[in-house]
C-alpha cells in the first residue's frame, strides 16, 4: 500500500523543508514503485545518530540486455533538499559489492551528481536516473557464484 502524502508529512515533521521533501518523495514513489520511505536511525561517522527517512528498495537497471533490480537506500538529511542524500547500495546475502569509481566497500555511492548537488537543479528523480545510467555501465553489485553443495556422504 502506498504511503500517503499525509503519512509522509507526519514522518517528516522534523525536516526543515518538509513540504519540499514530501513533494519530491511523492514523485519518486509514484515513478519508482519499488522504492519506499522508511524512518530509521542513521549513524553518522562521529557515532551520533539521528532519526531520518530513507528511500529503500530497488531501481531497475539494464545491463547487457537484462534488467536487474539493484537494491539501494537513499538517506535524506533533515536539511534536504539543500544537502544531497547519502546513498548506499544494499547487497543481499547472495550479492557482493563491486567497488569502483562510484561505490566503496561499504556500499556508499559516489557520483558527480551528488558532489555537485544544488537545489533546485538537482533532485531525487534526476539522481535515480543518473544511477540507472551509471550502474547500467558498471553494476555496483554482482551475484555471488553459487557454491556447489558437497556430495552427500554415504553411510554404510
Amino acid at each position: 500500500m502506498a504511503v500517503s502524502e499525509n503519512q509522509l508529512k507526519k514522518m517528516l515533521t522534523k525536516y526543515k523543508y518538509r513540504d519540499l521533501t514530501v513533494q519530491e518523495t511523492v514523485s519518486v514513489i509514484v515513478q519508482y514503485k519499488d522504492l519506499k520511505p522508511v524512518m530509521d536511525s542513521y549513524v553518522f561517522n562521529d557515532g551520533t545518530s539521528r532519526e531520518l527517512m530513507s528511500l529503500t528498495g530497488t531501481i531497475p537497471v539494464s545491463y547487457k540486455g537484462n534488467t536487474y533490480n539493484i537494491p539501494i537506500c537513499l538517506w535524506l538529511l533533515d536539511t534536504y533538499p539543500f544537502n544531497p542524500p547519502i546513498c548506499f547500495v544494499k547487497p543481499t546475502s547472495t550479492m557482493t559489492i563491486k567497488t569502483g569509481k562510484h561505490v566503496d566497500a561499504n556500499g556508499k555511492i559516489y557520483l558527480p551528481y551528488l558532489h555537485e548537488w544544488k537545489h533546485p537543479l538537482s533532485d531525487l528523480i534526476g539522481l535515480i536516473q543518473v544511477m540507472i545510467v551509471v550502474f547500467g555501465e558498471e553494476p555496483p553489485v554482482f551475484s555471488r557464484p553459487t557454491i556447489s553443495a558437497p556430495y552427500p556422504s554415504y553411510q554404510a
Binding site: 519506499k36 530497488t58 537484462n66 536487474y68 550479492m95 553494476p139 554482482f142 551475484s143
Partner: peptide, 14 residues
C-alpha cells in the same frame, strides 16, 4: 512481500 520486488544482480563476471 508487500509489493516489494526481489533484488537481483548480474551474475558474477569471474
Amino acid at each position: 512481500l508487500n509489493g516489494g520486488t526481489i533484488p537481483t544482480a548480474p551474475p558474477s563476471y569471474t
